[in-house]
Each structure stands twice: as C-alpha cells, then as structure tokens.
Amino acid sequence: MPHETTKNAAGALDVAVLVSIGRHPVTGRTRRADQDARAVEAALALDHARVQLIHAGHHETDSEAALRGYLGMGFEALTLIEQAGDADVLPALTDALREAPPRLLLCGTRAETGEGSGLLPYLLAESLGWPIVTGLAEIERVEPEHVTLLQALPRGQRRRLRLRLPAVITVDEAAPAPRQSAFGPARRGALAVSEQASRPDTALADWTLEPARPRPKRLKVVKAASARDRFKAAAAKAEGGGGQVLTDATPEQGAEAIFKLLHEEGVLRR
C-alpha cells in the first residue's frame, strides 16, 4: 500500500475524498458509488499523499457494507460523520472540513441516491471559498501551491488546467476505473464515527419522490402548408443517393475530393 509508506513523510499532501453510498442501477442494492470509487482511485494514484475518506450520512447495516467497499481499496479507517436519515449533510461536512482542511478535496460528480443533483461539491467550494474543477481525467503534477490536471472533454479530448490549492475536484466516468475492493481489508477497516449536529433537509421533505417513469417520446409532426406537402413528407422514403459518386476517377482525383471534404469538416489536425 504505497500511500501508507509515505504517511509520515514530510510535506505529504493532505487529500480528502468524499465517498457516498451508491446504488446498483440494475439490482438496486447498495454498493460503493462508481464515481466516488474513481475519485478514491485518483487519490491513491498520487505520490506522497495522505488520503483520508470522509462519509456523512445515516449509519445502518446496508450503508456500512457499501462503505466497507471503499475500505477494501486499501484503507485502515474511514471518517464517518453520523447524521440522521433526513439530514442535509452539507453543514456538517462544511464544519468538518473547516476544522481539518485538506489541501485537495476529491469527490464524485453526482450521488447515486437521494436528490443526486450534483450540487454538493459546488456548495462546498462556494462556502469554503475554494476553486472547483469538474471532469477530472488525470492528476499530472502536484506542487505545494498548485495542481496540474487533465480535464476530460467530449469526444475523448483533454484539456490541461492549473489550479490553485486548496481546491475541489470532481470525478466522473472519464477517470480511470477503480481497483477492486478486497474483502479482508474491507472487514478489518474501522469506521471512525464522529458526531456532528444534524439539521433536517426541510425542502426535500416537501417534494414528491417517485420511481422514474419513462419520458414521453416526441412525435414527428410535419408542419406543411398544403395537404400535398404533408402527404409527400409522410410517404417519403429514406434518403437514397443524394451523395456524390466519383466513378472512373484517378486515385489522385478521388483523394483530392476526400481531402476537400475532410478539410471542410475540419477533422484534419495540423
């Protein structure tokens, strides 16, 4: 376990990872949340880092099994901020992070249970006054005051960002997959319970929660001035042809045509 060997090293980076209870999308059983596990993996990939796991929420048998999934990734303890079932965990988390502020805070983008609005990292960053960056792909370098990271963009692209510490970084599916959770360390790990006052989430109590129903699909409505246009649209066959076909062209002419199209679409890198 590399992070343990560096535990007492001077100048080690304090990293806290917020972990939550996940829910398997098919079976509905509790599990370690996928994005949070990726955040733990990203923290474990750091050199010279002291990684601490924090969970705030209701403590029961189901959730304990899920939390032990994180311990099984190679941790001896997890800080558990115990809250009531209907609590808003944000004030308790903010207080806990203010008391012992880490240099870097990692977490998943969205929870898999509850409201799952993905707002918690932003609210934490706002109340702590730290910068926040989403969509982490890889942490490249950690300096005493800055961290350089790659952010995942759509279409597999990456962007390099430099961020002032302390900071919040959220992790989504673009980060490397988490390691497997080992059973022995998961059993042996300890849950260090810390009590915090729990404040109920009054807004959530007013809302109606129900299992998601399928969204209605939009019908294809043809708006046309005349009956003839409507009929033409309804009877239209799938577009066949319409493309340009180059027969009897030399390879150079063909290549020139393809090059022109690629250039117009702007997919050729320089």
Binding site: V245, A249, P251, A257, L261
Partner: peptide, 25 residues
C-alpha cells in the same frame, strides 16, 4: 448509397494518394 461522397476505385491507391495529399498540405 449511404455515403455523402463515394469514390470508386482501388482502396490502396486512393489511400496512398490521400496520405500524399495530406502531407503535402
């Protein structure tokens, strides 16, 4: 039929010409 641009011919020669064209550009 599906393609927006279709070139009929030997693929190896066309690819080679395309590579030459791109490198030239």
């Amino acid at each position: 039929k599906r393609a927006d641009l279709a070139v009929i011919g030997d693929s190896a020669a066309i690819l080679e010409a395309l590579v030459t064209r791109v490198e030239q550009a």
